[in-house]
Design a protein around this nucleic acid. Structure first.
Lengths: 166, 166
DNA sequence: CGAATATATTTCAAGCATAAAATTTTTATG
DNA sequence: CATAAAAATTTTATGCTTGAAATATATTCG
């Protein structure tokens, strides 16, 4: 195992400390991943059994609920941070189900705006209420007083990159 | 919007406090999700460009690296917490690539053990080293002194359920 | 104007993920 | 022993996800 970060015979005290920190971060990442996957799995199951829908569909609806006039496909994929092609498929299915409508954009025949229908807005409101309650249950082991601090740590993770700067 | 948790005219002081806590937890969840997705996206990109492989493949290899004699398919899906059918597909491809071998289990012709090949172990070691370094970079905004505390909070999230007990 | 370039979106191929049904083999029990 | 029940795995259907190629429309600038 040629691990550059594991403690090695020739390492200085600082190196060894860094290796330990590296292992600690790795364990932390695995726990972060485990916690997130767990919550996602619970949500997916609840959306499926309770509303016969999926998390990605809910995410699209949530993004559009906040912007009554709708969003262009590219804005939607940018807000949700998923690929354009992915959004196309999810939106296709939501349109089929009468939850979304596609509206042509004036002066640009390349673009389309997507908007929730009335039925879509109503369905979202029902789901959002349950969603908030599920999250409340799942995260209720977290001290509310901790939330601010925890949030800051997570914010800073979300900004790091493995390539250059930041 | 019939939100049971939002502050309502008729609510008591306690109800209003709970509604605020609920909103805070929802925001925290969104940040947790954002941070996790961000790290996953960086890792996926790095695995793709650096090793022409994927995170799920790495996860399977990591699970098998720890157990030299290999794991049964059901053990693998249980350790990784993914469905049986999913593991079948990923293992199929890893076997095609010479990274894994399937070994029949004595006295039970239903089961198969899956094990890393020598080439598989070597490839894993190279990738694991990079993986640890990537995580180290991505999480280096986190105080090592915080890690323990943060870990505990995450552990407790990972144990909650939306249905009964706990 | 007209060719090159840029932008918005969709299509495509491959892989990941689940739940449910099907298959094969083992174990239990009448 | 025979048949029912359980267990291990694979198969199937459906949907999410990406990155890359394709399509269509807009914009730029020589």
């Amino acid at each position: 195992m040629s691990d550059k970060l594991a403690a090695q015979p020739g390492m200085t005290g600082t190196d060894i400390k860094d290796a330990a920190a590296s292992k600690a971060r790795l364990r932390l990442w695995l726990k972060l991943l485990k916690a997130t996957k767990h919550v996602e799995a619970e949500l997916r199951e609840n959306f499926r059994t309770g509303f016969d829908t999926t998390l990605p569909r809910f995410d699209v609806m949530a993004a559009l609920y906040r912007v009554e006039q709708g969003l262009k496909m590219s804005e939607l994929s940018s807000v949700l941070r998923v690929s354009n092609g992915n959004v196309t498929g999810i939106v296709d299915r939501l349109v089929e189900d009468g939850i979304l409508v596609r509206i042509p954009v004036d002066n640009d025949r390349r673009a389309t705006t997507v908007r929730l229908t009335k039925a879509g807005r109503e369905q979202f409101e029902a789901m959002a209420s349950s969603h908030e309650a599920w999250i409340d249950t799942l995260l209720d082991g977290i001290d509310v007083s901790e939330v601010q601090h925890l949030s800051e740590q997570l914010e800073c993770i979300a900004r790091k990159s493995t390539k250059g700067e930041d």
